[in-house]
Write a protein that binds this DNA or RNA. Structure first.
Length: 497
RNA sequence: CGGGAUGUAGCACAGUUGGUAGCGCGCUGCGUUCGGGACGCAGAGGUCAGGUGUUCGAGUCACCUCAUCCCGACCA
């Protein structure tokens, strides 16, 4: 049966945000930690959310001209050292395959690695696929006619992080990574922008989370990129979360892997590259952006179950009657592509079911019992603001359709207002040190140097989340909040995940 | 890899000066309940992380190993 209940004593968001988050992930049935250090089991309910995300993103990628492909999990070690910055960025967190055979332990029980099966060249479990993909693209690209190449892969990657957290940072995680090759710098830069826009649209419209699009500062840039664009979201504890990145890689990987094409004049040129990705971390963002002490709050666009129907009845015939009453509406809703669950479990009490579906974040609950059947009504409760209404069965389909749209908007608005209330301009260093403790985004002038950013990070743990490109653009002359040197635009400082 | 802590039932924990294992939740069965997380009765479930030592006797004391968590460094 596996009934899971949040113990309210330990799930107060205000008191211990981390614990609240972790409890929620486990108790809502999204994921749990596994036997392997830092790895996560994504449970069916959590994976259903991921599948919905994948389907929408995949469609958006195809609409922007991309195709899916798949590249190997293992990368020869030598590939890795071809791009100096890239290897420096990932070297410390790589899982390495050194052998390919086990044998019975000659000294006792169990199995040991067979020393005779040592690989000549070690294989790296991909932490990201730039190197193996560029080694492949080398063979695909000869002429300007072969360009652009616009590939995406859905895959798992491994990064041996020191500290892990369910969804936000696990040793192995699922993601998509797009890798494109272009004839011109201009085209690659446009692609980088196009894909960060796709991410922003997805997170805003489907996940109902407001994000800022911006450039990363050089310190925060992807290893091997000339420019990294990102979307940054604010979680309910005021910390920032990088939700997606899109990198302009210049000709770095083309040069490292010697990928040249013949242009129309027959001259050889290096190609221009981008890469972009989002991961299961987005599920963590979804949880931390909307949920409350009663559990998940899922936006209707991504909820695996959009409407749950809970019957109230006495005896077996009573149940059949209510289910029949529900089925009429359920069939109509299904025709509208609304996903329905009728909770007919007879071994669980009604109140318990209510609490359980709230914990799982189902946007709408419909309740009906003898009273409603007599009156021709349903009781409809929304998860996002806990209000209930009695609705006539004649209007219920239209009502639900509108309500789903309304909930989606309302969740976004809530998150938007929260972000607005936790974003402020800060102009002095004294003020900065006080304000950063309160959480949220600080819009500050910065002198543009990595040294200043590094010092601010060391003193306050805050980093530049991005140099905004759409929301929060404040182009004005000012003085760096730390060094007092001149600055032309405010950037976003925050503590982050 | 530094600093701190913790390993006892599925989960969360208690366990006194060393004396042979407990509570709550969950689970199983029966009954009464059932429009917001019900209750009663009866059950099942443990190599007290592992090892060595001290002792007549170790969950408890000492040492070692392993694992996990938190704080740093790293990071989607």
């Amino acid at each position: 049966m596996g009934k899971q209940v949040i113990n309210k004593e330990v799930t107060n968001k205000e008191e211990n945000y981390s614990k609240w988050y972790n409890d929620l992930v486990v108790k809502a049935g999204l994921a749990e930690s596994s036997a392997v250090r830092g790895c996560m089991v994504i449970k069916p309910y959590g994976y259903a959310i991921w599948e919905k995300m994948k389907a929408i993103l995949d469609k958006m990628f195809k609409e922007t001209g991309h195709q899916n492909a798949y590249f190997p999990l293992f990368i020869p070690k030598s590939f890795f050292s071809k791009e100096a910055e890239h290897v420096a960025g990932f070297a410390k967190e790589c899982a390495v395959v050194t052998h390919h055979r086990l044998m019975n332990n000659p000294d006792g029980d169990g199995v040991v690695v067979d020393p005779s099966a040592k690989l000549e060249e070690e294989l790296i479990v991909r932490p990201t696929s730039e190197t193996i993909i560029w080694n492949t693209y080398k063979n695909w690209i000869k002429s300007y006619r072969d360009l652009p190449i616009l590939c995406n892969q859905w895959a798992n990657v491994v990064r041996w992080e020191m500290r892990t957290r369910l969804f936000l940072r696990t040793t192995e995680f699922l993601w998509q990574e797009g890798h494109t090759a272009h004839a011109t710098s201009q085209e690659a830069i446009e692609e980088t922008q196009r894909m960060v826009d796709v991410y922003a649209k997805f997170v805003r419209e489907y996940m109902a989370i407001p994000v800022v699009i911006g450039h990363k500062s050089p310190n925060e840039r992807f290893a091997g990129a000339l420019d990294t664009l990102c979307i940054e979201a604010m979680m309910q504890d005021g910390k920032a979360l990088q939700a997606g990145t899109s990198h302009f890689l210049g000709q770095n990987f083309a040069k490292a892997f010697d990928v040249k094409y013949a242009n129309k004049k027959g001259e050889l040129e290096y190609v221009w590259a981008t890469s972009w990705g989002v991961s299961t971390r987005l599920i963590g963002a979804l949880i931390m952006a909307h949920s409350d002490d009663n559990g998940l709050v899922l936006p209707p666009e991504l909820a695996p179950i959009q409407v749950v129907m809970v019957p109230i009845y006495k005896g077996e015939e009573g149940l059949d009657a209510v289910v029949e009453y529900f089925n009429v509406v359920a069939d109509q809703l299904k025709k509208e592509n609304i996903s329905i669950k009728i909770d007919t479990r007879d071994y669980i009490r009604t109140g318990y079911k209510f609490a359980e579906w709230e914990l799982k974040g189902v946007p709408i609950r419909i309740v009906a019992g003898p009273r409603d059947m007599e009156n021709g009504t349903f009781e409809i409760a929304r998860r996002d603001n806990s209000t209930k209404e009695i609705v006539s069965k004649d209007n219920v389909v239209e009502y639900i359709k509108n309500l789903l749209t309304d909930i989606q908007k309302n969740i976004y608005k809530k998150a938007y207002d929260f972000r607005a209330n936790n974003t402020r301009k800060v102009d002095t260093w004294e003020e900065f040190k006080v304000e950063i403790e309160k959480g949220g985004f600080l819009l500050c002038h910065w002198d543009g140097t990595p040294e200043t950013e590094e010092k601010i990070k060391q003193e306050t743990k805050a980093t530049i989340r991005c140099i905004p490109m759409d929301s929060f653009i404040v182009k004005e002359e000012g003085k760096c909040v730390y060094s007092g040197k001149p600055s032309k635009q405010r950037v976003i400082f925050a503590r982050s995940y």
